[in-house]
Amino acid sequence: MMMNLFSSFDPSSNWNLSLNWSSSLLGILIIPSMFWMIPSRLNFLWIKISSTLHLEFKTLIGNNMKTNGSTLIFISLFTLILFNNFLGLFPYIFTSTSHMIMNLTLALPLWLTFMIFGWINNTIHMFAHLVPMGTPPILMPFMVCIETISNLIRPGTLAVRLSANMIAGHLLMTLLGNTGPMLSSMMLNILIIVQLMLLLLESAVSIIQSYVFAILSTLYSSEVI
């Protein structure tokens, strides 16, 4: 029995242990087995998705010799987030991507790596990026402050966006589900249909949010090259 509405997002809600975080490791047991079996429709589908993502990320980054193979990082990031988002849709499985600690662990090292690479290898370009083209001289100090702040909050916005979208849908489904015992048979049937529609919406959100996280990371990396 939940003591409060947000206990479903508590990683230590069961037995006072943090075993719920082990849900993020389930992919190690499930996904690699695909590559050791005879190719199936699932294999071909995933290869097609990976190829499409590779071409899109490559277009965003640009054809630079220094960026060869970097699309694999973002495809892996997309896969990890997508898998954990989908796992959270199953009953009694902890959604690790609904927590800031998980999302910041993904976003902060990526952003910090981009910044270190950019300031070491393309210092002039990084300084020039702080002042957009066509800015009047009197506004340049303000634009530098604004661009610096917007750059510093990027990992936080990535993490908050993913966490908020994952929590919002799960919270709405939990709220509607808790009203089930108090409804009549007819309203209960309507509630089940609404819950199924919300589950379909959450499946779409899981795909979209993992794609947005990977795309924004790719765009941030393209700015430092």
Score class of each variant (00 low, 15 high):
G69Q: 09
S70H: 00
S70A: 03
T71S: 15
T71H: 10
T71A: 14
T71W: 08
T71P: 07
L72A: 12
L72R: 08
L72S: 12
L72W: 11
I73D: 06
I73K: 13
I73P: 03
F74P: 06
F74C: 08
I75G: 12
I75H: 11
I75A: 12
I75V: 15
S76I: 09
S76E: 06
S76H: 06
S76P: 05
L77D: 08
L77T: 13
F78D: 10
T79A: 15
T79N: 12
L80T: 09
L80I: 09
I81Y: 13
I81T: 13
I81A: 15
L82H: 10
L82E: 13
L82M: 14
F83G: 08
F83K: 09
F83W: 14
N84M: 10
N84S: 12
N84I: 08
N84C: 14
N85M: 04
N85T: 04
L87F: 13
L87G: 06
L87R: 11
L87S: 07
L87Q: 09
G88A: 05
G88K: 02
L89C: 05
L89V: 06
L89Q: 12
F90M: 13
F90E: 04
F90R: 06
P91D: 04
P91N: 03
Y92S: 11
Y92H: 10
Y92W: 09
I93K: 07
I93F: 09
F94N: 01
F94K: 02
T95K: 06
T95H: 07
T95N: 12
S96V: 12
S96C: 13
S96H: 05
T97H: 03
T97Q: 05
T97C: 05
S98F: 02
S98M: 05
H99G: 05
M100D: 02
M100F: 08
I101N: 06
I101Y: 06
I101H: 06
I101F: 08
M102I: 10
M102Q: 07
M102L: 11
M102G: 03
M102P: 03
N103Y: 00
N103V: 00
N103Q: 07
N103I: 01
N103F: 00
L104D: 02
L104Y: 01
L104H: 01
L104K: 00
T105D: 05
T105G: 15
T105P: 02
T105S: 15
L106P: 07
L106Y: 08
L106H: 05
A107K: 01
L108V: 15
P109N: 01
L110D: 01
L110S: 00
W111C: 02
W111Q: 01
L112G: 03
L112Q: 04
L112T: 06
F114P: 00
F114Y: 05
M115N: 09
M115L: 13
M115Q: 14
M115R: 14
M115S: 11
I116R: 01
I116K: 00
F117C: 01
